[in-house]
Design a protein around this nucleic acid. Structure first.
Length: 806
DNA sequence: GAGTTTGAAACT
DNA sequence: CAGTTTCAAACTC
């Protein structure tokens, strides 16, 4: 496997890089964005920033948001673009490397120098290191040696400077020294191990002044925190590297594909600017929160958490961009992506497992970060999940609701699209946005049930318990999530009870399966279907859906995908995604979303969760073959007539508990909130721009909800990306837009990118084809958007989506 | 908690 | 593609 995996990796890389894959990236974009980034990076810009109120705002936000979450921001820092290149290779590599052998990596990396790949490599290295090292063992070592070293030096120096450099602005000679040292030192230590890292780091240090500041801050913080910051710093460093346009240029090399580099630089640059500032703030601020955590926690924990973050970051990086920047052959992507996504998810989970026991403290930290982090993209979310999961002391490791591993969910719908934004928002809100800024939260809340809820509900609390509780809740889902208050209060009947449980489950974010015969290697298994590993809370028997059996899982997954490429795709396409079929009145349904394949209910009347449509909180569509459809969210015939809506309302009312925030209807709300306070969102985070998406009516087990969180998800990734690809985004700020776009593009599987076409193709092959609704183009490409979408559009200027027709 | 129902997934 | 079986969630008691 290892060799094969390598081969595949290489091939994929070659294809991606070598061919004009970059094509996908629109040159225009690069051009446009690039300049912007340059502008931002330019001294003048910096100077302006320092003077302008904007900067202040940022810092303020950050300061507010930051408590312990500063870390979270870091992951976000790594924009998907970075990852992009890594993504494919990563997956592949993982397959082959899952085990101890990683040396190859370095070698490979070594060959590729200076390009975006280099970045990728870095990410890789991080990942690898993380993977390779046991949580416990590597904690001390820190994933990135080069950076670590650097950080060490920096730390040494910074120790002196600590107080001096409290502010980001502080640019003392000491910092310079550190930088210099780092640069000089890196080569020695890290070179062999991580050839590129040091290069990158050097670049960063040398080139980016702002970054340096951020780094300094980080280092300072680090001092307070301990070693953890090293990794953080390293991450930051990477980020920084990308930030500067110059860097991008530098990266361009023989290997580099212009498009790629551009993409990377672009995406990174766009975000970076903010990120950096955030980072700085975070760092500066962080010490306080972090210290607290760490002080409480054993050093190990803190370190682990740190590592986790890094990991997440790496994942993010790896996961996101590939698609965007590199357009490989569709087939390849298709094949790879799902796997990769899965892989990621898996991996995270694996990580979680590994560290789960050890990490306790981080829970808070990670959780916070997780919440806060959302900024970037789905990917980030994943990272968050990871973080979160690890944080949890319990084995349950459930990921955030939806987060991590649910590849599918993301895909779901525009929602995902929204989800991403939401996540971003959520995280951002926590981190960046003021607690007060409800807009972002609202959006979040609407979109994803558990997560949203938790966020919304706990948003206030976010810093401490909420996130944690949430996550913990996830673990113990059964136990009952800490959050879900509203429902509980409302619920009184057994039904409510059930809901509660379900909600708890969802809130947990982890899916728990109860498989007995499928070994959790079939779609029967919710965990497997969601692209996540089974966790302790699962009651499954003979479970193979565990990191230990990664190969098996992947192989099985592939097999299933070969059978049905959309097998792991989100089943429900949310409003934005799904296009109501033309003529399908159901589209009118409150839940604009539709089930990908439609249901086949005969006895449940589509009024029970047996019905996937209903479960997903969407109305039945022409694709459904249900009999006696009474789907409250929209009847097959079209009828989502008023009556139906009334029913729906009734139901909702009835289940008010359930729906409360989650329910399908809310989706629209988010957008509104966004519209209302678009600025706030934007301010909060660049990524934030995204809006929330549709919620599943049933928070509880809806697979969809889960998925929604997962950004990475292979298939989900697609959908999500697709959606993102669509113009919807908030465009309040061009920057953000670009950012978002980039993300979307990256994640978007080619298939999706191609609009519906892929589906159709798939359709033919897939068993489900009949159900698969090619016509839907649900993928969100359709021009017809749901109300939510409309809202979004209003607020946001559309951008050209790769896929979209426009 | 055990048993039943249900419909997706898998198989033929 | 259709029919059947298997499976696990959803549901009921």
């Amino acid at each position: 496997m290892g060799e094969e995996g390598e081969k595949l990796e290489r091939e994929s890389e070659t294809e991606a890089c070598g061919s004009g894959v970059t094509v996908m990236e629109t040159p225009d974009r690069n051009r446009i964005t690039h300049p912007v980034s340059k502008f931002e990076d330019s001294p003048v810009f910096n100077y302006i920033n320092s003077l302008s109120p904007i900067k202040t705002v940022k810092s303020i936000r950050i300061s507010q948001s930051f408590n312990s979450f500063s870390f979270a921001s870091l992951p976000s820092i790594f924009t998907s673009p970075h990852v992009s290149s890594v993504k494919e290779s990563r997956f592949l590599r993982r397959h082959s490397f899952s085990d101890p052998s990683k040396p190859e990596f370095s070698s490979d990396n070594g060959n590729k120098v200076g390009t975006s790949e280099g970045v990728t490599d870095v990410a890789h290295n991080l990942d690898e290191q993380q993977e390779n090292f046991d949580p416990g063992s590597y904690i001390g070592e820190v994933s990135v040696e080069s950076t670590y070293e650097c950080s060490k030096l920096a730390t040494e120096v910074s120790q002196t400077l600590n107080y001096e450099c409290g502010s980001p602005d502080c640019t003392t000679t000491a910092c310079r020294e550190i930088e210099t040292k780092c640069v000089s030192e890196l080569p020695r230590t890290s070179k062999s191990v991580v050839p590129y890292n040091h290069e990158v780091s050097q670049t960063i240090f040398v080139e980016s002044g702002m970054h340096l500041e951020g780094i300094r801050n980080i280092e300072q913080n680090r001092e307070a925190d301990g070693c953890d910051w090293d990794s953080l710093i390293s991450d930051a460093t990477d980020l920084l590297t990308f930030e500067s346009p110059n860097n991008a240029d530098a990266f361009k090399g023989p290997f580099q594909h212009p498009g790629r580099s551009l993409c990377t630089s672009l995406a990174s640059s766009e975000f970076t600017h903010y990120e950096i500032s955030d980072l700085q703030n975070t760092l500066s601020i962080h010490p306080v929160g972090v210290e607290d955590h760490e002080s409480e926690n054993p050093p190990q924990v803190g370190e682990e958490g740190h590592l986790t973050e890094i990991e997440a970051t790496g994942d993010i990086l790896a996961g996101t961009s590939l698609n965007k920047c590199v357009n490989g052959e569709p087939s390849n992507q298709i094949d790879n992506e799902p796997v990769s996504n899965l892989h990621r998810g898996m991996r995270r989970r694996c990580l979680d497992f590994e560290t789960a026991g050890t990490r306790k403290r981080h829970l808070d930290h990670s959780s916070h970060s997780g919440t806060s982090m959302l900024s970037q993209s789905d990917v980030n979310v994943e990272s968050i999940d990871k973080q979160l999961v690890p944080a949890k002391p319990d084995s349950s490791r459930c990921i955030l609701p939806g987060i991590g591993l649910h590849l599918n969910s993301l895909a779901r719908t525009s929602k995902e699209y929204n989800v991403v934004s939401r996540e971003t928002l959520a995280s951002g809100s926590q981190l960046i946005i003021d607690p007060g800024s409800t807009a972002s939260f609202h959006s979040l809340s609407t979109c994803q049930e558990p997560l949203n809820k938790s966020l919304a509900v706990t948003s206030m609390e976010r810093n401490n318990g909420p996130a944690e509780s949430r996550f913990q809740g996830t673990k113990d889902a059964s136990a009952g999530p800490g959050y879900m208050p509203s429902e509980d209060t409302n619920q009184s009947s057994p039904r409510k009870k059930r809901r509660r449980l379900e909600d708890a489950r969802e809130s947990e974010g982890c899916k728990r399966c109860n498989c007995k015969k499928s070994k959790c290697l079939k779609l029967y298994c919710e965990c497997f279907a969601a692209g996540v590993y089974c966790v302790e809370p699962c009651s499954c028997q003979d479970c193979f859906n565990k990191p230990i059996h990664e190969d098996t899982v992947l192989a099985t997954r592939k097999q299933i995908e070969s059978r049905n490429p959309l097998a792991f795709a989100p089943k429900v396409l949310r409003s934005s995604d799904s296009l109501p079929e033309i003529g399908d009145e159901s589209s009118k349904t409150p839940a604009s979303a539709r089930h990908k394949r439609g249901c086949n209910c005969k006895k449940s009347g589509c009024l029970k969760k047996y019905c996937e449509c209903y479960q997903g909180g969407v109305g039945c569509s022409i694709n459904c073959r249900c009999e006696g459809c009474k789907n409250a969210y929209g009847r097959k015939n079209g009828s989502v007539s008023i009556g139906a809506e009334a029913e729906l309302e009734e139901e909702e009312t009835e289940t008010h508990d359930k729906c409360v925030a989650d329910e399908s209807v809310p989706k629209i709300l988010i957008p509104n909130s966004m519209e209302q306070n678009p600025d706030s969102i934007l301010q909060a985070t660049p990524l934030r721009g995204v809006r929330t998406s549709v919620q599943l009516p049933f928070s509880s087990k809806n697979k969809p909800p889960r998925s929604s969180f997962l950004p990475i998800g292979s298939s989900s990734g697609f959908y999500g990306s697709q959606r993102f690809g669509k113009p919807n985004f908030l465009q309040h700020q061009p920057k953000f837009e670009k950012r978002v776009q980039t993300v979307q593009e990256e994640e978007m599987p080619e298939i999706l990118q191609h609009n519906c076409s892929p589906i159709s193709g798939i359709k033919s092959s897939s068993p489900n084809s009949k159900r698969v609704s090619p016509p839907h183009c649900d993928f969100g490409l359709s021009p017809h958007r749901r109300s939510s979408r409309k809202l979004i559009l209003q607020s946001i200027p559309s951008f050209p989506s790769l896929t979209s027709k426009d």
